[in-house]
Design a protein around this nucleic acid. Sequence first.
DNA 1: AAAATAACTGTCAACGTTGTCAGTATTTTT
DNA 2: AAAAATACTGACAACGTTGACAGTTATTTT
Lengths: 341, 341
Amino acid sequence: MTAKKPTIKDVARLAGVSFKTVSRVVNNEAWVSDEIKAKVQAVIETLNYQPNRTARLMRTAPFSLAFVYDNPNSHYVIEMQNGILSECRRKGFELVIHPTDSGSDLVRQELSTMIGSNQVGGVILTPPLSENSELVQQLLAQQAKVVRIVSGAAPPDELCPTIYVDDEAAGRAMTEYLLAQGHRRIAFLGYRADHRSSVGRYRGYCAALEDAGIATSSELVISGDFTFDSGVAMTEQLLALPEPATALFGCNDEIAAGALFAARMKQLAVPADLSIVGFENSPFSRQTWPKLTTVHQPNADMAAKAAAMLIALMLEPDEQPPHCGFHLQLVIRDSVEKLAK
Amino acid sequence: MTAKKPTIKDVARLAGVSFKTVSRVVNNEAWVSDEIKAKVQAVIETLNYQPNRTARLMRTAPFSLAFVYDNPNSHYVIEMQNGILSECRRKGFELVIHPTDSGSDLVRQELSTMIGSNQVGGVILTPPLSENSELVQQLLAQQAKVVRIVSGAAPPDELCPTIYVDDEAAGRAMTEYLLAQGHRRIAFLGYRADHRSSVGRYRGYCAALEDAGIATSSELVISGDFTFDSGVAMTEQLLALPEPATALFGCNDEIAAGALFAARMKQLAVPADLSIVGFENSPFSRQTWPKLTTVHQPNADMAAKAAAMLIALMLEPDEQPPHCGFHLQLVIRDSVEKLAK
DNA sequence: AAAATAACTGTCAACGTTGTCAGTATTTTT
DNA sequence: AAAAATACTGACAACGTTGACAGTTATTTT
């Protein structure tokens, strides 16, 4: 009844060879005669033998990696996860998903345990975890392989292979686009000093305004979370101003969606009365009305690249794969009005 | 430089005890003197020893489970995943994520390998995979533990512990609500004969209409996928009818969101000109304008329950946990107009 | 024809745990 | 005071695989 799973030795017995030979066949090692190879393969087939991953892991380096994130945005997480997963699958690696709370001290301990217990051999870190170089250093000290995804025009340091995204350039491009459409009072929603992406986008926004000779007005820069509700609240705050903006730059698409909602509540037509743009090109940015003008962030590609780099690092620990920068691109849709000069 | 990870034997040597005693301390077994326990614990602390999960797995039953899905809806997947993950964490289990294509024959082989190679000890199946009893039987034959989530008023069979959701009752409740608001021409968007949830909701829709003495009109029942784009297309088809409906029942929130978009394109106000309802209570259903009336589907709770059942089954293979039904509840928001009789 | 190489195959020791069983003190019961 | 139970500790064999190394043939080179 129990029908224990067949082991390599069962195969060996039935094929009349040593179990080491079976191992050779399974791992496609050289110098096995075709005759024996065929015989063994036949037995494997009939027994439906599958090598035990656990036992194999005792003799080899781990082939699991962890995706650690602290992000409430399900689209972001899924896109990342799918990118990583596709790469893992191609290379025969496994993925351990680890959502966490970066505010808590638990993160370090959880990760330390994952590495220490050999559960995973490497870790992919996304913001804000990836910006914590203490954490990165601790992981490296535990022999973990680390690849991180950060915001910036270049990697912040040489701790580990890094994927970087130039939020500042994209924030600037977006703001320049708004300026080119004739907007002069442009609000920035979702500033967070502790969030590199946010700061980068903000810097780009400031730089573009400065280049255009426009003073940044502090009442037009509103701090808040990257969520829909926060977007609603920030937009309400903005619209309560004596002289509100004509365009609104949401630091991500969720904020922009919240802005869309808040504008609608105030009976404002978008884009006729208020232009709104987002950032991320998340799937729903083309499902809103009007469709959001935004910045495309190739999450799945970045994640796949991160996974590829991490796997390379795990297989060839001595060769550091080079850093890799990703380019962000404006996606122009229907949420911006061209103002008459 | 390599600084190999400490093993149980390193701890034993430093503590001056046998490695078996360390094992006892680590696993909190009885009959270890407090004195030795303290000494061992101190060494564990200083060495930062973590038991090797892989080695441990060679002697114990696997404590990983797989979440297998074939669903393009990221909210659904994330909610499920989070529910499972929270339960896994509480019980010290690991989760392997396995997106797949249920159309392909690969599924069976992939799952077979996961089980056969001892990568996971159990599997959580969601629709449409969970409706494939051949697949369930194959997994069971491989000694896998299986818990599935299906649509229905009761489990379809006794193959394995099952979580079931009564879509028909909810579809009926929703339709009755629409009828109570005075609607008589109600369209159903997203019928799919190969999709139990869809069929259940459709049956509820039909039953409610029949009870109200209203004939179902085939032109008001439109087949299509559970996606935004499909929702747009189906709504366009509906609105092209000589006499369109006054209310539209989208089989899920994405379809409803597509309907919202299509209505807007046709200059129709929702709900004034057309009432629209969805199904699932996904996060974005309260971020649309107007906020969608929908049915709450407790995905995270269902998933957590599934994980709890599966873990129980893995720990106590002889005690089948009982099936479990989940109730769906109407969430009334702003997308339905009350018609004057 | 002998030596050297290439082509195969098998034996055995790891890997780091947990389970079984045996052994030694210490306490309790008879 | 002896016997029995309880409390504790350690030796050793598993678990299923891979790696190192040692054989044994068959083929090529000298």
